[in-house]
Simulated assay, not measured.
Amino acid sequence: MAGVWVLGGTLVLGVLAGIVLTTRDGRIRRGMNQPQGTAPPESVADALVPGMVTLVQLSTTFCAPCRQARAVLARVAETTDGLAHVEIDVAERPEVAEALRVLRTPTTIVYDAGGAELLRIGGVPKTAALRDALAPHARPTE
């Protein structure tokens, strides 16, 4: 009988953990608290598009959600003025993930034209939520 209780408890914990992880996926957080004027790491600064808000996607080649995130980010960048999308493979450049304190892929970090971090998204972003979060910084193409 104790085995049934252990199995039931394990199933309940597994379902709860799945719910928590699902609700956190794609959540948009404001940029990390950086001192004013702090530039992104050099390895990322080289990838930023001058004069534009840049969506920097950190991904790996073997990550299925990374392909979904790439499609969402590319679509949003194509339909928004002043917005660019750049992808960095952290399997090839692990120093980037370390410098940015990224623990999972896909992670998207949004930088303004001056290189300040605006937003950070873990997982596949939701298109509508991303557009809303970017609204103060970039305008949809008309």
Rank of each mutant, 00 (worst) to 15 (best):
E87W: 10
V49D: 03
H85D: 05
E87A: 12
R67P: 04
V72I: 07
G18Q: 08
P41N: 05
A47T: 14
Q68V: 13
R67I: 15
T79Q: 13
M52A: 13
I19Q: 01
I28F: 10
I19M: 07
Q34K: 09
I88M: 12
T61Q: 11
G51M: 01
C63W: 06
L83H: 06
T79W: 07
R24M: 12
A45H: 02
G31R: 01
R93N: 15
M32H: 11
I28W: 02
Q57M: 11
Q57E: 15
T23R: 00
D81S: 14
R29I: 01
Q57D: 09
A84P: 02
G18N: 14
V44S: 06
D89C: 10
R67K: 13
R93A: 15
R70E: 14
T22K: 08
P40C: 07
L58C: 04
T80F: 11
Q34M: 12
R67D: 09
P50A: 06
P65L: 09
L83Y: 08
T80L: 04
G18L: 13
A39T: 15
M32Y: 09
D46W: 10
E87L: 08
T60Q: 13
I19E: 02
D46K: 14
E92L: 12
I19L: 08
T79N: 15
R24W: 07
I19D: 01
T80A: 00
A64Y: 10
L83R: 03
G26E: 04
Q68A: 12
A69E: 03
T22Q: 11
G82M: 02
A45L: 07
S43W: 01
P40H: 06
T22R: 13
R70S: 13
S43D: 12
I19H: 01
G51I: 02
S59N: 13
R70C: 02
L48F: 03
D89T: 10
A84V: 07
E92C: 01
A84H: 09
G31D: 02
R93P: 05
R75H: 13
G82N: 06
T23D: 00
V86A: 10
P35V: 11
I88D: 11
T23V: 07
Q36N: 12
R93H: 12
M32E: 15
E78C: 02
L73A: 00
A74N: 07
D46C: 10
C63I: 04
A74E: 06
N33W: 09
F62G: 07
S59T: 10
V76L: 01
V53F: 05
V90G: 05
D89S: 11
